Simulated assay, not measured.
Amino acid sequence: MPREFQPAVYIMANRRNGTIYAGVTSDLPKRAWQHRESAFDGFSKRYGCKLLVWYELHATMEYAILREKQIKAGSRTKKLALIEAMNPQWRDLYHDICGP
Rank of each mutant, 00 (worst) to 15 (best):
P88Y: 09
G48C: 08
G18P: 01
W54Y: 15
G18I: 03
P7N: 08
V9D: 00
K30D: 04
E56Q: 15
W33M: 14
H58S: 09
S26W: 01
E84R: 12
K72A: 08
R3I: 05
I97M: 07
A81K: 15
T60Q: 00
V9A: 09
G18W: 04
I11R: 01
V9E: 02
T77R: 14
G23A: 02
K69D: 06
V53S: 07
A22M: 03
F5P: 01
L80A: 04
R16C: 07
N87C: 10
M1E: 11
I97P: 04
E56A: 13
M1V: 13
D27H: 08
T19D: 09
N87T: 05
L66P: 00
A39L: 14
L66W: 06
Q34D: 14
R31I: 01
A8C: 11
G23Y: 01
Y55D: 02
F5E: 12
C49W: 05
C98D: 01
F43S: 07
G42P: 06
Y55G: 00
F5A: 08
N87G: 07
A73W: 01
D96T: 12
M86P: 02
V53G: 03
K78L: 10
L57Y: 11
N17S: 02
G74R: 10
T19F: 12
Q34P: 01
T25I: 11
R91I: 06
H95C: 05
A85R: 11
A73N: 13
A81L: 14
C98F: 07
Q70C: 07
N14W: 10
R15V: 03
E37V: 08
W33L: 15
L52R: 05
K72N: 06
L51I: 11
L51D: 11
L82E: 05
G74K: 01
Y63C: 09
R67M: 07
I11P: 03
L93E: 08
P7E: 04
Y55P: 04
A73H: 06
W33F: 15
L80V: 10
D41W: 05
M1G: 15
G48W: 04
K30Q: 10
Y21R: 14
M86H: 02
P100V: 12
F5N: 14
S26T: 11
R67K: 15
D96H: 12
K78F: 02
Y10M: 04
A13D: 03
L66C: 10
A13C: 11
K30S: 10
R46T: 13
P2H: 09
G42A: 09
L52N: 04
H58Q: 06
A39T: 12
G99Y: 03
A59N: 13
A8T: 00
P88F: 03
H95R: 14
S26V: 08
L52D: 04
V53T: 05
M86A: 15
L28Q: 06
P7T: 08
Q34I: 00
T77L: 12
Q89D: 15
T19E: 14
H58Y: 15
I83A: 06
M12R: 03
A8W: 02
I83N: 06
K69F: 02
K45Y: 04
D41G: 13
E62W: 03
N87K: 09
G74Q: 13
F43W: 09
T60M: 01
T19L: 07
F40H: 15
R91N: 13
K30M: 11
R76L: 15
Y94S: 09
I11N: 05
